[in-house]
Write a protein that binds this DNA or RNA. Structure first.
Lengths: 345, 345
DNA sequence: TTGTTACTTGTAAGCGCTTACATCGCGTCA
DNA sequence: TGACGCGATGTAAGCGCTTACAAGTAACAA
């Protein structure tokens, strides 16, 4: 008969109805077998599941989401996948989600607020049940978009109680100030700041502010701080470092906005025949794998990536389940000593 | 009736119908404004678009996919996001897709064929118009799944004309043999192979085979090759290196399955007080950023990541547009000399 | 026997969109 | 003037699923 033919037809993607027909039950029963197996007799269930397997049936996600009004999918928008800055945190986030049967959709914004907004909109359109965001800085519109659609979100990588958003992260300014305290203690008075691009990036901004504030508190002239902004890439870090080394008097330490920049600085230092930390000290931020394997090892700020990722997942699930409000969570960042920071020459 | 009330209800996500009502047109017209603006008069279009903005309307992706039977979304399943091995290629893939108005969904399989299959199924259920896969090795089922649902796919990172799948990549065995030729030329006769896990990973397998075959061709006893398998992580690389250094006679070179392992090896060598390449040479594979910034710089196999990513996107779009068959594309990998490979001591 | 309960299964109404087809005006041309 | 074509818009039929509700059945107590 033609029904069978239809089912077999190459190129035809089997639907619930195909399965129902072949198993001689209604589509509702098939749906139940898939979603609430206990509500179906074993006999029926087994027959249905066999057909499901034979036909290679997989539910159409869009249709399911449309009918059920939930997707069991969360989204994350991270600034970049190009380096490992967010990898560990995201991995932990993903693992925690997986444990709860939730799928993760990852999008990257290339550190571009406009693009990020588009990605958020995209995730919302895909019906995600929640979104993880990096940092607080973004157009108010982006937040409104989510609120209006009733999509819960959590901000990570940054702790700022003045912001009205659910969040989990650490105080970037404070962390940088803790590092600077050590830098200053070691006698450095001329510092080069190799910052990430601050526009639309509160982490970069707060870290930079932390440097300036520490110097001010220590009574060091603002003049003694030279700042260069660079994209977060090794090459840009190298170029930025070279630029800082032009400055006279030459900085005795280059404080970097993150480890990727620091790795670039280190490379450039080597290329220029500068000894680190003998001639110039270099510090990083984030403590990604990179920080450990470069030579000399980077003294950096250790960020609790995994804890942050896991925590973000938990918050998001609470939010989805209606718990509201969830207070901001502050995590501690600590200084990790390796070899790249030494006494001022 | 309740419709008007419904529209006002706070928390209500606006639909096409809401927009249509507010703009006093039919839902078909709104749909046209969004998808084929030229088919609507400017006047109507502007009125509609204003309402769209006011209501913050965003189309429901699932519903659209359901009705239109296409998603303008492609998927990629990569083994890991934890390190940068696939980052550059994926970035290029993404960029090319973006140029064509296509969204990319990225999933990671943790180098687990079972998980990969699940991710493929997931992407298929989400209605992606095509999938990028890494390497050839996977259960036949995974391929069947895609074929049965008519989802085009392209295999990357590997070139193997004997495989019946559309692909773009390089010959991992040949590339490794080219590197080994140099290793042997430099007098190395005792080699340690720090391989990635070969099960379900043809790249790792073929690279390892390349090492063995090169030695055989050079008339070096198979005994002189010691192989250790490790997960692709820095720590595992370090541990594997330590293990290889136990072997007597000690290998004069450690050939690594990729740069991440090599970075781990380098770290361990330093920890053991071994000079590279003075006491022992180390080689990498892939030429990711890491390879350049470690000390000494890694001599490695340069892989045309970006070219591969872009090419994969092009192939996938051809496939989607019905062009079939698309012959496998072979890219060239070349040796990139830095400092970590030297003459045998 | 009959009513009640507990389960299993089926029926059918949407979910929010796209699109084939119908309709409506209006300018054009013989 | 009327037939015609054409562009703009509306109508309505699904796309593949979930789920409230109805219907059917078997077990059991009264």
């Amino acid at each position: 008969m033609t029904m069978a033919d239809d089912t077999q037809r190459s190129g035809h993607v089997p639907t619930l109805a195909d399965v129902a027909r072949a198993a001689r039950v209604s589509s509702a029963t098939v749906s139940r077998c898939l979603n609430e197996p206990h509500r179906v007799t074993r006999q029926t269930r087994e027959r249905v599941m066999r057909v499901v397997r034979e036909l290679g049936y997989a539910p159409n996600f869009g249709a399911r989401a449309l009918a059920a009004r939930r997707t069991d999918t969360f989204g994350a928008v991270i600034p970049t996948m190009d380096n490992a800055i967010f990898a560990r945190g995201l991995q932990a986030f993903q693992e925690e989600m997986g444990r709860h049967g939730i799928t993760l959709l990852v999008a990257s914004s290339s550190y571009d607020p406009g693009l990020e907004q588009e990605q958020i909109r995209n995730l919302a359109a895909r019906g995600v049940d929640g979104v993880m965001l990096i940092g607080h800085d973004r157009p108010e519109d982006s937040y409104r978009l989510l609120q209006r659609r009733g999509v819960p979100y959590v901000v990570t990588w940054s702790h700022d109680p003045s912001q009205p958003h659910p969040s989990i992260g650490f105080d970037n300014r404070k962390a940088m100030m803790a590092l600077m305290e050590q830098v200053i203690r070691l006698g450095h008075r001329h510092v080069g700041l190799l910052s990430g691009v601050r526009y639309g990036n509160d982490r970069a901004r707060l870290r930079a502010e932390g440097v300036a504030e520490s110097m001010q508190r220590a009574g060091i002239a603002a003049d003694n701080l030279t700042t260069v902004e660079a994209r977060y890439s090794i090459d840009a870090g190298a170029a930025g470092f070279a630029q800082l080394m032009q400055r006279r008097p030459r900085p005795t330490v280059v404080v970097c906005g993150n480890d990727v920049l620091a790795a670039g600085a280190l490379r450039q230092a080597r290329a220029m025949g500068l000894n680190v930390p003998g001639d110039v000290s270099i510090t990083g931020f984030d403590d990604i794998d990179l920080a450990e394997i470069v030579t000399p090892g980077l003294t950096t700020v250790h960020v609790p990536h995994r804890q942050m990722g896991r925590g973000a997942a938990e918050i998001l699930m609470k939010l989805r389940d209606g718990q509201d409000p969830v207070p901001p969570v502050e995590l501690k960042a600590s200084i990790l000593w390796r070899e790249s920071l030494g006494a001022a020459p």
